[in-house]
Design a protein around this nucleic acid. Structure first.
Lengths: 118, 118
DNA sequence: ATGCGTTATATTTTCTCAAACATAACGACG
DNA sequence: CGTCGTTATGTTTGAGAAAATATAACGCAT
C-alpha cells in the first residue's frame, strides 16, 4: 500500500468496534468511556460534563445499556445524599473489563495491520 | 460477556476499519465498494446510482481518493463516446486488492472475537 | 420547610452532513 | 451543429442527531 500513498501525507489505520443488536447499539468505545467516568464520578451528570456531552445524551446511553443487559449495569438513585447519584454495578464492572480487553486486542490487531500496510 | 446480555436479544459484533490522514479519510469499506462499482460500470454516475448515492457525493469521494494517492486511482474523461466515463487505474486496482485483503482479515478478526464473546 | 444536586423526561433549537437541485463544459456522433 | 450522457462544481434543501432548554420529582441536610 505504501507506494500508493501520497508521500507528503501522514497515513494511519483507524477503526471502531462495537456490539449491537437488531435495532440499537449495545457497547462501544464511547459507552466504555462513559461507564468508566460514571465509576469515577459516581454521577451521570458529572460523567457527562467530564466528557463534554449533554446529560440527556449520557442518560440515554445508560438507559440503552441497562435495557439491553441481562441485569442493570448502572444503578441510579434520585434524591438523597449529594442529590442522588449513579454507580456501576458488578455486572457493569465485568462489562467494562471484558470490553476493555476486546478493545486492547483490537488495538493490537490494528497496530499489526498498520505495520504491514505502511 | 454472554451472561451479561439480555437473553431475548440477538447480539453481534460489528466494526469499521479505515485509512485516514490528519484531515481526511482515505480508504474505507464505502470507498472500496465505490471503486468496485466504477470498475464494473465504467462511470461515476452509474456507480453512484447503483449504490443509491448522489453523484456529487461519489465524485467527492473519487476526488478525495485521487488527491491523497501518489497517483490517480480513477481516471476520468469528460465528453466523447458515451458522454465520457471513468476507469480504475492500475494503482486503483492495487488499492482495491490490498484493502479487500485487509478487510477480509478484519472480518476474520471479528468472527474470532465474536466466537469468544458470545 | 426549604434548598440543593441529582435523576428523569419532554420540548425546542442548533448543527451537520448528505441529498437535491442547478449549470456549465466537454467531445463523439448522428 | 444540435443532441446526448457524462464529468465538474456551486448552491439550496432536508433529515436526523445532538445540544440546549425547561420542568418535575426525589430525598437528605440544614
Amino acid at each position: 500500500m505504501k507506494n500508493l500513498l501520497h508521500p507528503d501525507l501522514n497515513f494511519r489505520l483507524n477503526g471502531r468496534l462495537w456490539v449491537e443488536t437488531d435495532d440499537d447499539r449495545f457497547m462501544g468505545i464511547g459507552r466504555l468511556e462513559l461507564l468508566t467516568q460514571i465509576q469515577e464520578q459516581g454521577s451521570i451528570s458529572k460523567a457527562a460534563q467530564q466528557m463534554g456531552m449533554s446529560y440527556k445524551r449520557a442518560w440515554n446511553l445508560v438507559s440503552s445499556l441497562n435495557a439491553q443487559a441481562a441485569a442493570p449495569v448502572v444503578h441510579t438513585q434520585t434524591g438523597g445524599k449529594r442529590g442522588g447519584g449513579a454507580e456501576v454495578t458488578p455486572a457493569g464492572q465485568q462489562l467494562i473489563q471484558e470490553y476493555r480487553e476486546l478493545q486492547e486486542r483490537f488495538q493490537a490487531f490494528m497496530a499489526a495491520e498498520a505495520a504491514r500496510l505502511f
